[in-house]
Amino acid sequence: MNPSWARVQLARHPKRPHSLDYINKIVEGFQELHGDRHYADDAAIVGGFGFLAGRPVMVIGQQKGRDTKQKLIRNFGMPKPEGYRKALRLMRLADKFRRPILTLLDTPGAYPGIDAEERGQAEAIALNLREMARLQVPVIAIVIGEGGSGGALGLGVANRVYMMENSVYSVISPESCAAIIYRDASHAAKAAEALRLTPDDLLKLGLVDGIIPEPGGGAHEDPDGASVALAAAATHALDELSQMDGPSLAAHRYDKFRQMGSFFSE
């Protein structure tokens, strides 16, 4: 098995900690907040407030389920428009009261279904991308498992973007990529390699700021150790970013994404 494909398997490992696992371990007094105030409460995105090492923080993340029942409730971690709108509502709430935001990215992608299209999946994600750029508070995003394309990025426009050691971040799933290139999803391993989706790849491409090491064989073997590592990285980033005022934070986030690209003019 090539290392990229192995990483995809680890990122999707059934025992891997999900957003609420991390939140319950590292956020004190977490209070979950529900609903987008327009349509529904999407269980594939969770969010709420609490304290991280004594600092108030709004935490929002995509949520996968562990057993079959939970997987269905969480829609396999694939959010619908109301999920992104809930996330935006909570981010604006944090912005209003000058509280930093921590997002945890873990989704195969935004849900591709009739109802999601009818309610504007594309518009919901697009709006989050634009409005996250406007926030005047520190925003930290951590890819904890699968960073599935626009569905993940919809929570990912942050001042600092980190990836857990065994996570991936990609524009398309290796299976879909293989289906397009080789007309056969079973070539996913090859596609995973071509897509350069590992934390090392993204760091080299200048798209993420750092990699959070996982203990031993990976977060699924030691969720406590992984939570400590994640909390340490988030706290450190918070301390640094808290030195900046609102406009500087928005400018910093803008400049960070502005320089992403790879082109030349002949």
């Binding site: 626009g150 524009v171 989706l197 986030r253 992403m260």
Partner: peptide, 14 residues
Amino acid sequence: EGAVSLMQLAKISA
């Protein structure tokens, strides 16, 4: 262009 393409969404939206 992998994740570099993906980040263009954020860049343009910003």
